[in-house]
Design a protein around this nucleic acid. Structure first.
Length: 550
RNA sequence: GCGCCCGUAGCUCAAUAGGAUAGAGCAUUGGACUACGAAUCCAAAGGUUGCAGGUUCGAGUCCUGCCGGGCGCGCCA
């Protein structure tokens, strides 16, 4: 938070001293080395060209002004090329601790979104099989991002788009139908492109139970029934897994619904009027190449089937033009990146600013088992299900691991390591810090503390280096929240948690919180409570629990 | 062939919109429990940031070209 304050202060002073300067981009950063202070800015270096003065001279002038702010700064220095280094007064950090104790679960909130309506669409796996490990990463990412954006003042809706239309669904139905035949003793030949997973048998059994005369029906009708049943069962299974993974959606949006409402037709007609549609070789094409796509795309195939893209155009048209979202965030697997340009092209055709659609591509997940990479394919029925991770690893460790990497980085999920409840598994390191603090408070109660009146605490007792470091770390939380939100980067919080937990564990092993000295104890308990609150708030943004005992 | 992502310590990854002497964890080695939970802590060691140029006060970060890896390039989703 102090970082934001310093930034504002700099902006104000520049205005006073040099007049308003447009598009000024400068940094307020935490230097890597302590000798450069708690924070530093490069603003004088950036201003050099604008003001045609030496950076040192500019820095000196600004520093003089900042020295007046004795409540915030304890020391200010101008160095070498023109950096200004700031040391923050302990008093500031104490005030921040008081704020934490007062705000509790509200601490760290910051209004970046100003109530902007944002839709986060994620997972959206086709209901052709259970969720696997790759979907899990998208689920953890999308849900955590939703929590972070909500925490930072956005009005967030979480949505799952169900692709329940098209050839894949027919194949799904036919797969079930064939398995039903097989189960009834018929000899079958199972085509290469059908769904081979074991779950298809389960659905087939269910179909036979529900429709005893299934196999004597007209085949087309039987497949249709199998399809409907399969979608229903698989979707329930998906919902169930996601719930166990603590991912709760606001909407489950059906693709077929778009067609029932004639949305797709409407949107295609609109494009037709604009002259962006043409017919070639029996198919209907959209001139996406006019809007930055590599080539035009088919939206209605020559067999009159709509492509997935057709539905997606209508879906996104509706998101912006009818449902009124200011920002839409789609979270896709990186293997879909080729699709980005055509969807943005569609938005441009509707005069929707393509920047309003943020597509976040998440790199693949490699499953490591026994030290080897296992390959996965839904069609072949070879994949590790999310369910398996939930059963064997648990939601907390699974989420933490998924959220420990930037989306750009492929993730190796070592299932053996994830299962271990040991130091190699970082989630426990963080949770343990929280549990330890809870345990201290339990002990304190045993020792006769029945209430903690922070208002009466004498914070001067927090005078060790480790205590000041912790106070600084707690203040930093607000900056981390801000960057996690504006960069769509939940992993920033994961790293922050590990750092905070580390500093707490160090402190814990070096100093005793509970002692005969009541005043010292109360101050240290206050610091512990601050850590507990921040740990819990940060964990909550990842959707990971903060246990009292482990 | 074209497009997107990536290349940092033995391994897995950070490095905050270009900042100062590139940091963690794991693994390795050696230490610390009769006091709030040892799922913890302390210490040691580990690097030509894939290669070569360029941009500037300053490059792991930006530009160009190579090398290596992943993923795409359908009237599939």
């Amino acid at each position: 938070m102090i970082r934001r304050k310093i930034r504002e202060l700099i902006e104000n002073k520049i205005n006073e001293l040099f007049g308003s300067i447009s598009d000024l981009i400068f940094e307020v950063e935490k230097p890597k080395r302590e000798i450069y202070g708690d924070y530093a800015t490069n603003v004088a270096l950036v201003l050099k060209n604008r003001l045609n003065k030496s950076p040192l001279e500019i820095a000196q002038k600004l520093a003089q002004e900042f020295e007046k702010e004795t409540k915030i700064f304890s020391k200010i220095e101008v160095v070498k090329p023109g950096f200004i280094n700031f040391w923050i007064s302990q008093n500031y950090y104490i005030e921040n601790l008081k704020k934490i104790l007062e705000k509790k679960e509200e601490y760290g909130k910051i209004d970046l979104g100003h109530g902007k309506k944002v839709l986060i669409e994620f997972v959206s796996a086709n209901p052709t099989g259970p969720l696997h490990i790759g979907h899990g990463r998208g689920a953890a990412y999308g849900d955590s991002l939703a929590r972070i954006l909500d925490f930072t003042g956005y009005n967030v809706t979480k949505e799952y788009y169900i692709n329940n239309k098209g050839t894949q669904m027919i194949i799904l139905g036919a797969s079930v139908y064939l398995r039903a035949k097989e189960l009834s003793g018929e000899k079958i030949e199972f085509p290469e492109n059908y769904y081979k997973g074991a779950y298809i048998y389960d659905i087939a059994k269910e179909a036979l139970k529900l429709y005893p005369d299934l196999l004597s029906m007209e085949e087309e009708k039987a497949i249709e029934l199998c399809k409907e049943l399969a979608i229903k069962i698989i979707l329930e299974d998906i919902k169930n897994d996601l719930e166990r993974f603590r991912v709760i959606y606001d909407n489950w949006y059906s693709e077929t619904g778009l067609y029932e409402k004639n949305k797709v037709e409407e949107v295609i007609n609109y494009l037709k009027e604009k002259g962006l549609i043409y017919e070639k070789e029996g198919a209907i094409w959209f001139k996406s190449s006019l809007f930055g796509d590599e080539k035009d795309r088919v939206i209605i195939r020559s067999n009159k089937e709509y492509t997935y893209f057709a539905g997606d155009i209508a879906y996104h048209y509706e998101k912006f033009k009818e449902r009124g979202f200011d920002l839409c965030i789609n979270i896709w697997g990186a293997d879909h990146h080729g699709y980005v340009k055509r969807l943005k092209a569609a938005l441009k055709a509707f005069d929707i600013d393509p920047e309003k659609l943020q597509i976040i591509l998440i790199q693949m997940v490699n499953l490591i088992e026994g030290g080897e990479i296992k390959s996965m394919s839904t069609r072949q029925g070879e994949f590790v299900e999310l369910k398996e991770l939930l059963n064997e690893v648990g939601a907390d460790a699974t989420r933490f691991i998924f959220l420990s990497r930037s989306a750009d980085s492929p993730l190796d999920f070592d299932i053996d390591l994830a299962k271990k409840q040991s130091q190699e598994n970082p989630v426990y390191y963080v949770q343990y810090a929280h549990a330890r603090i809870c345990s201290i408070f339990e002990k304190a109660k045993e020792n006769g503390w029945d209430e903690f009146n922070w208002g009466r605490a004498n914070w001067e007792f927090l005078s060790n280096k480790e205590e000041l470091d912790l106070l600084k770390k707690l203040d930093e939380f607000q900056d981390v929240v801000e960057s996690a939100s504006s960069l769509y980067a939940p992993y920033k919080l994961t790293y922050y948690l590990l750092e905070l937990a580390k500093e707490f564990h160090e402190y814990y092993s070096k100093y005793r919180v509970l002692s005969e000295d009541k005043e010292l104890t109360l101050a240290r308990l206050g610091l512990c409570m601050g850590c507990k609150i921040v740990l819990k708030n940060a964990l909550n943004l990842l959707g990971v629990s903060a246990p009292k005992k482990m």
